[in-house]
Design a protein around this nucleic acid. Structure first.
Length: 606
DNA sequence: ATAGGGTTAG
């Protein structure tokens, strides 16, 4: 702890010639002492005191001291980039170290544009970047998804010969991954030698970023078989995220066990990932137990637990956790409010939802995003409060997006409100929906109103608009392996066994008197074709595989996901719809099959 | 002389 008198209330930068050489010589504090003082600073106040001393002692023009001053201001957690910038301006001949530090500081603060501007300024002054410059700059590119700039920089660093640098290579993997160019990530990874744990981590994270969950697990398998790598925390976090999205509870649990064996304690991120994994994989008890034992909970942890409870329909429990979070003094952010509002949405808590929506704006000064509006509009729609919903759409500051109209359309269909449904449908079409599911939903709406012609017209729009019927995929985990299926899938090696199993399942269901309900979904399609389609529907395939591989009373969890290729950067948004099945004896009951058939029209993202 | 890469929620 440094205790120095404050000598300057406001900083005055003396011109160089005003600092008499003799003064510097006469005082003890040399540059070494100055730098070590700077390094032991613990607040900006202390830094300013040291800076004041520097001014007094004539060290304020010493490049070494100034460099260290910038580093302290820019990189400390309590630092101040404005101050760093001020000092940076005082250096008349900044080199790559000073620029690197400034770029790094801005990246750390999340000010990526300024970081890149500084990089450009550096080049303009013909200061050559070094191998330290590129990791920071590439990180800024990654954060801003600037693929073109990233490519240009890759070319530049190649010319300068820094492509051999391990850190630069790892940064490149990350940059390409964040920009959605996964094949380049893989190329960099394959061509580099040697690799480090961070290389694997970056590659796995890059795949995780794009929702390529199965690939994450495969790469991890390669990593473990290829050499003596230690699975690090960050890799395990990515793997847990993959498990969460794949619903791979068994694999997730074994990662948990691995963690308990190999680490002395878990950090918040790992614990939060675990809680999320258990929640989304349907193991609420474990998730809650783990959450309750966490010694440190942050905003993320609460978001995870609240949205998990929301998914399982425990609206009141979710709200209770939200109150607890506020009592703990954790400021909610917009993400927490998304999860809280969606808890109200899932549980049909209209009044609570509306109150929280206004509390968010008035008490916490959070401007609602389209997602928050989407939650509320969905909430109102599900409660058949269509006037209120339409009124809110009118009043919201941004244009309603497809998600908003889609949820309204869905609600109108369920409540048999053709007027609102048609309005939503019109608006959805105006947004030039590329989603085949939307047309199916419109078709279903008309089918329910027995307007068969309109229903058929809506269906014909799909081939007319040449829309891909994005096949939903089903994912099932058996014996720690993850299988995924699309409708009519025959890509699996043992597909004959699978289809034989389906045959048996159908036979048994028929025996129990089950007749598939195809009235609404597929009106106007040839009846035999319908049954063919349904028969090999992806969920059924997944169920068959699970039945083949599991014993009688095992719980089978099948996850329904949708790829949304329309999202930016080629990202896949996997939104899992979870259906829980039990395979105890004859109990893979008929209503489950109905659910699976309805699944074909359920693949619009929420 | 001082330094760098990978990780969580919707």
């Amino acid at each position: 702890m440094i205790k120095l008198p404050i000598l300057h209330q406001h900083l005055v930068f003396l011109p160089q010639q005003d600092c008499p050489q003799s003064l510097e010589l006469s005082l003890r504090l040399g540059e070494k002492e100055c730098v070590s003082l700077l390094k032991s600073c613990e607040s900006m106040k202390e830094v300013k005191q040291v800076h004041a001393q520097m001014l007094k002692l004539g060290l304020s023009w010493n490049p070494y001291c100034l460099s260290n001053l910038i580093t302290t201001c820019a990189l400390s957690n309590w630092g101040n980039m404005d101050y760093a910038f001020l000092v940076f301006g005082q250096i008349d001949d900044p080199g790559s170290f000073e620029f690197n530090t400034m770029i790094r500081g801005h990246v750390k603060d999340g000010d990526f544009e300024t970081a890149l501007q500084l990089f450009v300024e550096m080049l303009k002054r013909e200061i050559l970047p070094d191998n330290f410059t590129y990791p920071f700059v590439l990180k800024a590119c990654a954060a801003l998804c600037l693929l073109d700039l990233g490519l240009e920089i890759h070319g530049q660093l190649f010319k300068l010969g820094f492509h051999d640098d391990l850190y630069v290579q790892n940064s490149l993997i990350n940059m390409y991954g964040k920009c959605g160019n996964i094949s380049s990530s893989c190329t960099v990874f394959e061509e580099m030698e040697p690799k480090s744990v961070a290389s694997w981590s970056a590659l796995i994270a890059a795949h995780a970023n794009l929702g390529m969950w199965c690939e994450c697990l495969e790469i991890f398998r390669d990593m473990m078989s290829e050499g003596d790598w230690r699975a690090e925390e960050s890799i395990l976090v990515s793997l847990l995220t993959a498990c969460t999205h794949l619903g791979a509870l068994d694999l997730g649990s074994s990662i948990h066990a691995y963690l308990m064996r190999n680490l002395s304690g878990l950090n918040v991120i790992l614990e939060t990932s675990l809680v999320d994994m258990y929640m989304k994989c349907g193991s609420i008890e474990k998730a809650l137990a783990l959450f309750n034992r966490m010694s440190l909970k942050n905003r993320h942890s609460y978001t995870v637990i609240i949205s998990g409870l929301a998914i399982h329909g425990h609206g009141h429990e979710a709200l209770r956790h939200f109150s607890e979070m506020l009592e703990q003094g954790i400021e909610p952010d917009d993400a927490v409010y998304v999860s809280v509002l969606s808890a109200c949405r899932h549980a049909g808590l209209v009044q609570e939802g509306l109150e929280l929506f206004s509390k968010m704006q008035l008490e916490h000064q959070i401007q609602p995003t389209i997602q928050h509006y989407g939650c509320i509009i969905d909430l109102l729609g599900r409660a058949a409060m269509f006037n209120e919903a339409l009124d809110l759409i009118q009043r919201m500051p941004m244009a309603p997006n497809d998600v908003v109209w889609r949820s309204l359309l869905s609600a109108a269909r369920d409540h048999h409100n053709l007027e609102v449904g048609e309005k939503a449908a019109r608006n959805l079409m105006q947004l030039d929906s590329k989603n085949a599911g939307d047309y199916l939903m419109i078709s279903n709406m008309y089918a329910r109103a027995q307007r068969w012609t309109d229903s058929a017209i809506a269906r014909t729009m799909i081939p007319q608009k040449a829309l891909d019927q994005v096949a939903g995929a089903c994912i099932v985990e058996v014996k720690r392996k993850v299988y995924s299926f699309v409708s009519q899938d025959k890509s699996h090696s043992n597909w004959e066994d699978i289809y034989e199993m389906i045959h048996q399942m159908e036979w048994q269901l028929k025996f129990e008197g089950y007749i598939p309900d195809v009235s609404e979904v597929l009106h106007g399609v040839d009846a035999e074709e319908k049954r063919q389609n349904l028969r090999h529907h992806s969920q059924k395939l997944a169920l068959a595989v699970a039945l083949i591989h599991t014993s009688q009373d095992a719980t089978i969890r099948i996850h329904y996901t949708t790829a949304c290729p329309s999202l930016a950067f080629g990202q896949y948004n996997t939104k899992a719809k979870r259906v829980k099945w039990t395979s105890s004896g004859e109990k893979f009951a008929a209503h489950n099959f109905k659910q699976s058939e309805a699944g074909i029209q359920k693949h619009h993202p929420i």
